[in-house]
């Protein structure tokens, strides 16, 4: 029993690693996509639009297979954890980009004009004027997306990453204690997710009062 719990905890650490890594990939790539879309350069726009549609319509697991086995087929071996980080991060970025874009829209156009009138470029206005004002609005949805990634991180089991569900499945077949293992996994998830969800709620409340001040 205690060996099983220890094993599941180690798996939980791997899950956290995958989710955090994917979250960083998603937050950075999502911002890049949103900025590119905002700058509206024609060739980039088409690339960006097709990428977004693809990422949104294809299941994460398929993207994970593509990265893990697809790259393997052309001779690039990456380990299953890294593959999961990249695949889940890239897939999530299509959604993160929308959070940023919605955030950009909260900044009045006149703020950009004030930046332009100082001589800032379009990129400069975005990075110095628009994005910083957007941060408070995107942090709550970004935290929510981390909670989501904690769950989708279990997909990494499909490529053999030793995360929590992978170890859980092993434990189940080893001990036959399916209900016990599932209960432990649920418990671990609830313990990690609850404070995060709570934090999002608090932040959103603060944000509302800040926006109205």
């Amino acid at each position: 029993m205690s060996a099983t719990v220890a094993d599941l905890l180690r798996g939980g650490v791997v899950t956290l690693k995958i989710a955090s890594g994917a979250w960083v990939v998603s937050a950075v790539l999502g911002l890049a996509l949103a900025v590119l879309q905002d700058l509206g350069l024609a060739p980039v726009k088409i690339f960006q639009a097709s990428l977004t549609i693809t990422l949104r319509s294809v299941p994460q697991l398929v993207i994970l297979y593509l990265l893990y086995f697809g790259l393997g087929a052309v001779g690039i071996q990456i380990n299953s954890i890294l593959a999961a980080i990249l695949a889940l991060g890239v897939a999530d970025a299509a959604f993160t980009a929308e959070y940023y874009r919605a955030g950009f829209m909260t900044v009045p156009w006149t703020q950009r004009e004030a930046g332009f009138s100082l001589g800032l470029s379009r990129m400069g206005v975005l990075m110095r004027v628009v994005v910083p004002q957007t941060i408070p609005f995107v942090v709550p949805p970004l935290l929510n997306s981390f909670v989501g990634l904690l769950k989708t991180a279990t997909l990494a089991a499909a490529v053999g990453a030793p995360e929590i569900l992978y170890r859980g499945q092993n434990a189940m077949s080893r001990t036959g204690e399916i209900v016990l293992v599932v209960t432990i996994i649920m418990g671990l998830y609830v313990v990690v997710t609850m404070p995060l969800t709570r934090a999002v709620a608090v932040m959103e409340r603060r944000l509302r009062s800040y926006a109205h001040s």
């Binding site: 006149t110 703020q111 004030a114 009138s117 100082l118 001589g119």
Partner: peptide, 21 residues
């Protein structure tokens, strides 16, 4: 370049447009 040109000309707006952050 618009940037260089605009940087020579100050602008003061009706609604201030200070950067709130």
């Amino acid at each position: 370049g618009l940037s260089g040109y605009r940087s020579r000309i100050g602008m003061v707006f009706q609604h201030f447009e200070l950067f709130p952050h």
